[in-house]
Design a protein around this nucleic acid. Structure first.
Length: 151
DNA sequence: TGTGTGATTGTTATT
DNA sequence: AATAACAATCACACA
């Protein structure tokens, strides 16, 4: 079966490009808008829900969960190496910072491999979303996932 | 015992 | 186009 590669609607997919330089560049190295400066640091407001997840599982009962981003995949690998070099370091936060800084230093090709993973995931996510939309139209009654009684 | 918190960037959905 | 929120993770602090 010829599994066609996922459509890289915006990034990843530098397969044909073998140049060490940034293929199209900007995509990954695009500069951030000044907006993000005052957007990224509201204080800690977003954490409200971001950390409110405690029950693993039936979250997709309502909507398909967002797949991890390339950065997260990189984190998993990074953590392994980081903990080895820094066994003293407890975890998270410290790693996140180190990882973030390194992520910026990583080159396109190095990041592409993670982008590629995320891209495939998004493809799956799109599919889940499609079914979700259909299901929604079919029967939107379902909304209680936690209190899912016998029905 | 149990849960929120913190920190990172990327993607998605919304407006 | 720009904005708002969320995605995973794990030690620690508090009631």
């Amino acid at each position: 079966m010829a599994k066609k590669a996922p459509k890289a609607r915006k990034s990843a997919s530098a397969s044909t490009s073998s140049s060490t330089e940034n293929p199209d560049g900007k995509e990954v190295l695009r500069l951030k808008s000044a907006a993000e400066i005052h957007l990224r640091r509201p204080n800690s407001a977003k954490k409200s829900k971001a950390t409110l997840k405690k029950k693993p599982g039936k979250v997709d009962a309502k909507k398909p969960k967002k797949p991890p981003t390339a950065f997260f995949y990189f984190l998993e690998d990074f953590r392994k190496g980081f903990q080895e070099q820094n066994p003293d370091v407890k975890s998270m936060r410290d790693i996140g910072k180190a990882c973030g800084e390194k992520w910026k230093t990583m080159t396109y090709e190095e990041k592409v491999q993670y982008y590629d993973i995320a891209t495939e995931k998004r493809a799956e996510f799109d599919r889940a979303m499609s079914e979700y939309n259909k299901r929604k139209e079919s029967g939107e009654d379902k909304e209680s996932e936690d209190s899912e009684f016998d029905g």
